[in-house]
Design a protein around this nucleic acid. Structure first.
Length: 105
DNA sequence: AGATTGACCAGAT
DNA sequence: TATCTGGCCAATC
């Protein structure tokens, strides 16, 4: 995968994330599939970790498949709760109810 | 060129 | 819920 494609991949990832409606979340693997690069979930995480501030990407709506929030991020839960995302009592996002599109293709 | 790393995933314990 | 295992794959030593 040429480095040029990496840029495109990043842009696609950001594009998808921007489409996530309020009160919904999606997993890294889900984004990977939607962008046409299944199996690149780790790259999605990489891309999100390098979001330029100017892009204003709502990366807080991206969680891992277990509904676990992003490590070393504080305040993410508050942001999500403010948008109406359902949380389970354990502090995880309730994917069953808040997952965007159920990630079906 | 080889080893390590990471905002992952699924399953098991 | 936390931790582990094995798999994954590009980025980064």
């Amino acid at each position: 995968m040429p480095s040029v494609d990496r840029v495109k991949f990043y842009r696609d990832v950001y594009c998808v994330v921007k489409e996530i409606p309020e009160g919904k979340v999606i997993s890294y693997g889900g984004i990977a599939r939607l962008t046409g690069w299944p199996g690149h979930s780790r790259m999605v995480g990489k891309a999100l970790s390098q979001i330029p501030g100017e892009w204003k990407i709502p990366s807080h709506r991206v969680v891992n498949s277990q509904g676990r929030l992003v490590p070393h991020w504080s305040g993410q839960r508050d942001l999500l709760e403010a948008e109406g995302v359902y949380f389970k009592s354990n502090g995880y996002v309730d994917m069953k109810r808040s997952m965007w599109k159920w990630e079906v293709e």
